[in-house]
C-alpha cells in the first residue's frame, strides 16, 4: 500500500500535532486557478489535500461545496482534467498525500478499473466516495487495492457500535469522522462531543482519525486538533474561493494560502497551549 499518508501522519505525530487536511474542488473557479491553489496549499501548511471531483448532484454537500461543484462544471471540468491536475501537482511535490473525494457516478462512467489505474499513475494516494457505503463498494474496492490506493471511509454520529465494524472493514489511510449529522458546511459539533467520538473510534481502530464537517475557523480547528489526528477544513475555503471569484480577484491562491496558514498555525500550537493551560 502507498505510504505517503502513513509517513505524513507519523511526521505530525512526531511533532505532537494534528495534521491539517484541506479540501478544495478541482476546477473551482477554473482549472488554471485551481491548479495554482493546489500548488500553494503545502507551503501554506496543508499536510494532506483532498481534491473534490465535481458532480452535478452532490447530495451530501451543503451550499458552499454545491456552488464550488457548479462553478467547476460550468468551466467544463472533466474527470480526466482532475487527474491531469493531480499529475502536475505530483511532478513538483512528491510527499503531500492527495485524496480524491466525490461521488460514485463519475467514477462508474469513467470505469472503476481505469479510474484506479489512472489515479494511481497520476500520483493519487486514495479516494473517498461519499455515496458508496461498504455494502455497494465491491465494484470499486478491488481496483483500488490492485493499484495501491487507499479507500478512506466515513464514520458519523449515527455510526453506532453495531455499524462501526462494517465501516472499518477494508478502510485504510485514515478514518474520516463526520462530526455532525448533516451536509458539509453545517454547524459545528462541540469539542466535548468530538473528544468523546474520537475516543470511541480509537477504541475500535488503529487508523488515524480525521475530523471534519463544520470546521471553519482557526479556533475551531485548534479545539479539534487537541483530540483528533487530523482536522479537515473544506467549506470555509470553498466559500472564500467563491467570494474571490465573484469579485474577479486575481490573487485567489494567495488568499487561500493565507487562510490555510492561519488554520495551520492554530493547529500547530493547539496541543502545546492545551498542555500549558
Amino acid at each position: 500500500m502507498n505510504d505517503r499518508l502513513s509517513a505524513r501522519f507519523a511526521a505530525c505525530r512526531a511533532d505532537n500535532r494534528a495534521a491539517l487536511v484541506t479540501f478544495v474542488t478541482a476546477g473551482d473557479p477554473d482549472l488554471e486557478t485551481s491548479a495554482a491553489i493546489l500548488a500553494a496549499l503545502p507551503a501554506a501548511g496543508a499536510d494532506i489535500i483532498e481534491i473534490g471531483m465535481p458532480f452535478t448532484d452532490p447530495m451530501a454537500d451543503g451550499a458552499a461545496i454545491q456552488a464550488g461543484n457548479l462553478r467547476s462544471l460550468a468551466g467544463g471540468t472533466r474527470l480526466r482534467d482532475v487527474l491531469a491536475m493531480v499529475q502536475a501537482f505530483r511532478a513538483t511535490d512528491a510527499d503531500t498525500p492527495l485524496i480524491l473525494m466525490g461521488y460514485f457516478n463519475p467514477i462508474l462512467a469513467y470505469g472503476p478499473d481505469r479510474f484506479a489505474a489512472d489515479a494511481a499513475a497520476a500520483g493519487l494516494d486514495g479516494t473517498i466516495v461519499v455515496d458508496l457505503p461498504p455494502e455497494e463498494a465491491d465494484e470499486l474496492v478491488p481496483h483500488l487495492g490492485a493499484h495501491g490506493l487507499h479507500l478512506v471511509r466515513l464514520a458519523t454520529p449515527t455510526t453506532d457500535v453495531a455499524r462501526l465494524p462494517r465501516v472499518l472493514e477494508g478502510a485504510s489511510g485514515f478514518l474520516y469522522y463526520v462530526a455532525v449529522a448533516g451536509v458539509t458546511g453545517a454547524n459545528a459539533a462541540t469539542a466535548t462531543d468530538i473528544a468523546a467520538a474520537v475516543a470511541r473510534l480509537k477504541a475500535s481502530t488503529a487508523l488515524p482519525i480525521a475530523v471534519g464537517f463544520g470546521v471553519r475557523s482557526p479556533e475551531q480547528a485548534a479545539a479539534i486538533a487537541v483530540h483528533a489526528d487530523a482536522v479537515v477544513v473544506g467549506s470555509a475555503l470553498v466559500d472564500a474561493i467563491g467570494a474571490a471569484a465573484a469579485e474577479r480577484a486575481n490573487d485567489i491562491p494567495a488568499r487561500v494560502g493565507a487562510q490555510v496558514a492561519a488554520l495551520a498555525g492554530a493547529i500547530r500550537t493547539a496541543r502545546h497551549q492545551e498542555a500549558a493551560a
Partner: peptide, 22 residues
C-alpha cells in the same frame, strides 16, 4: 437482501444515512 433488482437498485447513500436506511 441488499435491495438489488439484477444489476440495479441497492443503497448508494452517505454513511450518515446508512443506519437509518437499515
Amino acid at each position: 437482501a441488499n435491495g438489488h433488482f439484477g444489476a440495479f437498485g441497492g443503497r448508494y447513500v452517505a454513511e450518515t444515512l446508512m443506519p437509518l436506511i437499515l
